[in-house]
């Protein structure tokens, strides 16, 4: 079907953080509907250069044919924590998948923590979500992707399909990590599901020099304590650490991701994560 005939919204939000005057500043923001952001918060008095921003959807989720993009650029030495207030629902969209593309560029010695709440796939939802991260020397980042399914009528109806892709590369274009996953809702819920008995999935990459990475055992234990099943591994091409997470539902998954990401945040910044109101 030609692109012009598609329904849905086309919008790309752009956020550019820079370092200036001893702090990080949101230097540029282009936030069209349905995106919305809060003002930047400074939750760490001992690290005033680290700012926190909530990214919100003003429209109640992703709909049929949506093509939404999010570009985050971290200037050299800047530091930001971008999060969401709640999970994002992906509505019925089987014939025209909703697309969400996140492009992140982390400058030299900059830091980004971007761990949104899970995408919740409703019955007949179709989603294509990609995350591409470009790293300059000394860059550090914690970035997640996560999905769960939910039938509001409690009838166990599956989503249609989901495709997830994650790429990490250097500023010179050398590919460090490039994976793509694809599964239908029926396969997701099948007895032979690659998730086993679990019904929610998340991945987290902790990117940075080896010397600042956390102990994988600590993160695994933290995620396990929330009721998730977690595993960590060094990523290809010494990009950092990769976490896989399985949970029985989206709420447990979000808790596991928050616990794991919190440990990663602490390792990369030396700060205990602040309690965030949601």
């Amino acid at each position: 079907m030609p692109d012009d005939n598609r329904t849905g919204r086309r919008a790309t939000a752009r956020l550019r953080f820079v370092r200036g005057g001893g702090t990080s500043v949101l230097a540029d923001q282009h936030v069209p509907y349905p995106f919305h952001i809060t003002k930047p918060f400074r939750l760490y008095p001992q690290r005033p250069d680290l700012i926190t921003l909530y990214l919100q959807s003003a429209s109640g989720g992703l709909y049929r044919g949506d093509r939404l993009g999010l570009d985050i650029a971290m200037g050299a030495g800047s530091a930001a924590h971008v999060t969401t207030q709640a999970a994002t629902v992906v509505h019925r969209s089987a014939d025209q998948p909703a697309c969400q593309d996140t492009r992140i560029r982390v400058g030299a010695d900059a830091f980004l923590h971007c761990v949104p709440d899970p995408l919740i796939l409703f019955p007949d939802a179709a989603l294509s979500a990609s995350t591409r991260i470009t790293l300059e020397p000394g860059a550090r980042a914690v970035v997640s992707e996560s999905i769960a399914c939910h039938d509001p009528e409690g009838r166990g109806r599956p989503f249609d399909q989901v495709a997830l892709s994650l790429g990490v590369e250097t500023a010179e274009g050398t590919v460090l990590v490039r994976e793509r996953a694809r599964i239908t809702g029926a396969e997701f819920q099948d007895p032979a599901s690659p998730l086993g008995p679990w019904r929610a999935y998340g991945a987290l990459v902790i990117l940075g020099p080896a010397s600042c990475l956390p102990d994988p055992a600590d993160i695994q234990a933290a995620a396990d304590r929330t009721g998730c099943r977690a595993g960590l591994s060094p990523l290809p091409n010494a990009a950092g650490l990769g976490l896989r997470l399985l949970a029985r539902d989206g709420g447990t998954l979000a808790a596991g991701l928050e616990a794991a990401a919190g440990h990663a945040f602490e390792a990369l910044t030396g700060l205990e994560p602040a309690r965030r109101r949601k």
């Binding site: 994976e179 793509r180 996953a181 690659p194 695994q220």
Partner: peptide
């Protein structure tokens, strides 16, 4: 352009990650 391979086996991957230690 880039060759992209597709796979999705989180249960067995997590088992392999945990077992590696």
């Amino acid at each position: 352009d880039a060759i992209v391979l597709t796979g999705f086996t989180p249960l067995i991957e997590i088992a392999a990650m945990r077992h590696a230690r």
